[in-house]
């Protein structure tokens, strides 16, 4: 076997491909684009121009490349009084674990390109959700290790938010699972054949999941742990340079991964495409469809920055426990009703 074939085999192996190519490179590109869109959309809505001068023809897209380069080459300062090992490990581990759900998410219905053996595929939604709930721990750890009052307050706020949104996200996804009667993402997508997408059948659960994603990745209006006006940069106050970029990028990557999960559970996954045989039709094209839908969700979340202010912590928790939790439960109930009368 020639070297390039071996390389192609390794990269084409679904878990590697998904975590490295879709996960790392894809989400890097998506998050750069999302940040640009966020600034540009907010500027449009607020009657400004937004990023412009770096590349007037591209609408200032190169600003983001410049920002990235600045973060990459900035001197990362490690303050003397931080707890060094967790301080360094938290952003890196948080980023990697944020991408790990991609190692279990199927992007096609063709079994030869599933990342897990078919038996384990039965629980792919549960495994992915379980991994997806891990990264916030590292945000709290980052705040704790920073040994800075703002960072600690930010970390505690994150902890409050986690407790609220995690339940909602999981219950919301259970709404989809209850409707289909399976934790297998492939079956959930297959059940949405012919535009019976669960977003149409079960909009309540989708809304709960959407808001939970917004909360979990601290996008507006729930940008509470990092609110600059109150706690500088929250858990990331002491970070600089590439470590800060990892922390900030981690939120966008998590948003992207959760958006992919939402696409599979509610937006019909790779449909209207039907995966066929071979690498191109069986794997690459379906994954592009899924990623494209996920990008739409990420951009929709970015758009919220343009219109919302920031909620206070108590308002966000109030909304989470009093409105979203019943909403998510209603989503499960709706899913069960639909399953019993056989709509899905």
């Amino acid at each position: 076997m020639a070297v390039h074939e071996a390389l192609a085999a390794i990269i084409g192996w679904p878990p590697i491909w998904q975590v490295l190519i879709i996960g790392f490179i894809g989400s890097l590109v998506v998050s750069i684009f999302a940040v640009w869109f966020e600034r540009k959309a907010a500027a449009r809505v607020q009657r400004r121009l937004g990023p412009y001068w770096a590349s007037p023809r591209l609408g200032g897209l190169l600003h983001l490349i410049a920002d990235l380069a600045r973060y990459a080459f900035q001197y990362p300062i490690i303050p003397r009084r931080v707890d060094v090992v967790p301080f360094l490990a938290a952003p890196i581990a948080g980023l990697i674990i944020a991408l790990l759900p991609l190692a279990v998410i199927p992007f096609t219905s063709n079994p030869s390109y599933w990342p897990l053996p078919p038996a384990a595929m039965e629980y792919s939604l549960l495994i992915a959700l379980a991994i997806a709930t891990l990264p916030p721990i590292f945000i709290i750890a980052a705040g704790w290790a920073s040994n800075n009052p703002f960072a600690v307050i930010g970390g505690v706020r994150e902890a409050f938010i986690i407790v609220a949104y995690e339940l909602i996200a999981i219950l919301g996804f259970l709404g989809a699972a209850a409707a289909v009667g399976s934790f297998n993402l492939v079956e959930i997508v297959a059940a949405q054949e012919g535009f019976k997408w669960l977003i149409l059948l079960n909009p309540i659960a989708f809304l709960a999941v959407f808001i939970a994603i917004v909360m979990s990745t601290s996008a507006f209006p729930f940008e509470i742990p990092e609110s600059e006006a109150e706690v500088v940069a929250g858990p990331f106050t002491e970070y600089s340079g590439i470590l800060y970029a990892l922390n900030m990028g981690g939120a966008y990557m998590r948003r992207f991964v959760l958006a992919i999960l939402t696409v599979l559970a509610f937006l019909g996954g790779w449909q209207p495409l039907t995966p066929g045989e071979g690498l191109l039709w069986g794997y690459i094209l379906p994954s592009i469809v899924v990623v494209a839908k996920a990008v739409v969700i990420v951009l929709a979340i970015s758009f919220l920055r343009a219109v919302y202010g920031r909620y206070r912590l108590d308002q966000a928790l109030d909304m989470a426990w009093k409105i979203l939790l019943p909403l998510a439960l209603a989503g499960i109930a709706l899913g069960l009703i639909e399953a019993s009368i056989g709509v899905v």
Binding site: R44, V45, R47, F303, V307, Y308
Partner: peptide, 18 residues
């Protein structure tokens, strides 16, 4: 507020002086 945001997003009335 979301509809208002979408309205301005589709049809921005920029005031910025370039």
């Amino acid at each position: 507020v979301l509809m208002l945001g979408v309205k301005y997003f589709v049809n921005p009335r920029r005031m910025t002086l370039v």
